[in-house]
Each structure stands twice: as C-alpha cells, then as structure tokens.
C-alpha cells in the first residue's frame, strides 16, 4: 500500500519525501477537522444532562 504510493509519487527521493510528508499532514488535518469531530459525539463522554430519553440533550447526537 505505502510502497505503491511511494512508487507513484513523482521526482527523486527528496521530492517524494516532501510530498509524502504533505500528504500525511493533509490526512491528519482532515481527521482532526472533519472525521474526529463527527466521531467524538458517538462516545459517551458528552452525556451530561438529565433529559428523559436522551433526546435533544448533550447526548450522542440523537
């Protein structure tokens, strides 16, 4: 998988390293900006209200 990506990056080893680093940073940014904020409410740490059937509260986004 990573070998396949490496082989398909252009340029010499230095250019490839820089591009690979940028790719990693882009993936981490996307995770922190979009994926994790979506996934985090699925964990129970946000259930801090008393709200009957957990509807509309600070629950897991029901």
């Amino acid at each position: 998988m990573y070998g396949w990506i490496w082989r398909h990056l252009p340029g010499n080893a230095w250019v490839r390293s820089v591009i690979a680093l940028l790719l990693v940073l882009a993936v981490v940014y996307a995770l922190f900006q979009y994926v994790f904020p979506w996934a985090e409410p699925l964990l129970p740490f946000g259930d801090v209200t008393v709200d009957g059937a957990s509807a509309g509260g600070a629950g897991a986004g029901q």
């Binding site: 998988m1 990573y2 981490v28 995770l31 922190f32 994790f36 996934a39 985090e40 964990l43 740490f45």
Partner: peptide, 22 residues
Amino acid sequence: SELCITVGTLIVLFVAYVLLWT
C-alpha cells in the same frame, strides 16, 4: 501489516484528539 499500523495510528490520533485537542 500496513493496515494494522494505519489503524493503530488512527486510534492513537483519535485518543489524542479526544483527550487533548477537545
């Protein structure tokens, strides 16, 4: 192996997000 490493990295990053970044 690469998949395992990737998933492990994802989990570590997610824990860091939940515990620190939030």
